[in-house]
């Protein structure tokens, strides 16, 4: 298989205007990935599948990752004029990384027996701009897995033929794989007369029956 930098260059040459960025991976696995902008994702996917030297015809794994907004605090030494004297002062600088949802695709080639190539798509934010293009039209194997990402992370796949919840039930409203998900005390709470009956029983125990 070509190196990731070569693949990136070929994508940029083949798909006009596509923004592709390398996402490095520092772990010993060395599986670096490519981030592709949403508006060209389908064209890039089609290119990866059709190109005779790449032939990524097998989309093995599709999954979501939630990256909430994080604040990183760094201590930075700067020099500043204090009462006319130049002194070095420690400053605490805060940098914010806006939150987003990410969809990760692991591609292999059955024809040429190489891989994986890892593609990443990102949403604008985590609240209202959560669309990414669906790659199901390119790889049918994404169908259920994208539905699962929609169900558990809340990523909306535009162009998906049948985007419904798959593991949670249809009436469920939240997305449980998000990092800030708080589970309800009781999933299957139904109002029952139980509480009222309990109050009544306590009252009757104190000899106030009938009130």
């Amino acid at each position: 298989m070509e190196t990731l930098a070569q693949i990136k260059a070929r994508i940029e040459a083949a798909v006009a205007g596509a923004v592709v960025e390398m996402v490095p991976n520092d772990s010993p696995s060395g599986q670096h990935s490519l981030w592709v902008d949403n508006s060209h994702a389908v064209a890039v996917a089609q290119f990866l599948r059709e190109d005779p030297e790449l032939r990524f015809d097998f989309c093995s794994n599709v999954t979501g990752v939630d990256w909430p907004e994080t604040e990183r605090t760094e201590k930075v030494k700067t020099t500043r004029l204090v009462d006319g004297v130049e002194t070095s002062v420690e400053e605490i600088r805060k940098t914010k990384r806006p939150g987003f949802l990410e969809v990760v695709y692991h591609l292999y080639s059955v024809a040429l027996k190489h891989g994986p190539l890892i593609l990443r798509l990102r949403t604008e934010n985590r609240s209202d701009q959560v669309q990414v293009p669906s790659l199901t039209p390119v790889w049918r194997g994404c169908e259920f897995q994208e539905r699962e990402v929609f169900d558990l992370f809340g990523v909306v796949f535009t162009g998906h033929p049948d985007l419904r919840r798959i593991l949670m039930w249809d009436e469920f409203t939240d997305h449980p794989m998000r990092k800030d998900y708080v589970e309800p005390d009781d999933y299957e709470y139904e109002p029952t007369p139980h509480d009222e009956v309990l109050v009544k029983a306590r009252r009757s125990g104190r000899g106030e029956a009938g009130t």
Partner: peptide, 10 residues
């Protein structure tokens, strides 16, 4: 505690 990064094993 593995170092930050990611891996896919199959």
């Amino acid at each position: 505690r593995p170092k930050p990064g990611e891996a896919y094993g199959r």
